[in-house]
């Protein structure tokens, strides 16, 4: 199972990002894990400065906004 980490200090966009990840996963019927990372130390360790950011299997794949549905599909199916 792929594990997505959503990095962000609790902003509205971070919440939307998590929801969108879940929704897309449900729609295409592949189970994924979604974790929230709010600790600034961990966010710093990923070298992220703009949130929400997404880490997929420990690799930073996106930062600075809510990803599009297309992007999420690509990550899940990849």
């Amino acid at each position: 199972m792929k594990v997505f980490k959503v990095l962000g200090t609790g902003c509205a966009k971070c919440v939307s990002t998590e929801q969108r990840l879940q929704q897309v996963a449900v729609r295409i019927g592949i189970e994924v894990g979604v974790e929230k990372v709010q600790d600034p130390r961990q966010i710093m360790a990923y070298g992220v400065m703009t949130t929400p950011a997404i880490v997929l299997d420990e690799k930073l794949v996106h930062q600075g906004g809510i990803p599009t549905v297309g992007q999420i599909e690509a990550w899940i199916k990849e």
Binding site: T9, A12, C14, P40, V48, M49
Partner: peptide
């Protein structure tokens, strides 16, 4: 441009 909700990561990014 940056959202104020990114203040902390930006602060740490600059600092580190």
């Amino acid at each position: 441009p940056f959202c104020s909700c990114s203040s902390i990561p930006v602060f740490l990014g600059f600092t580190s």
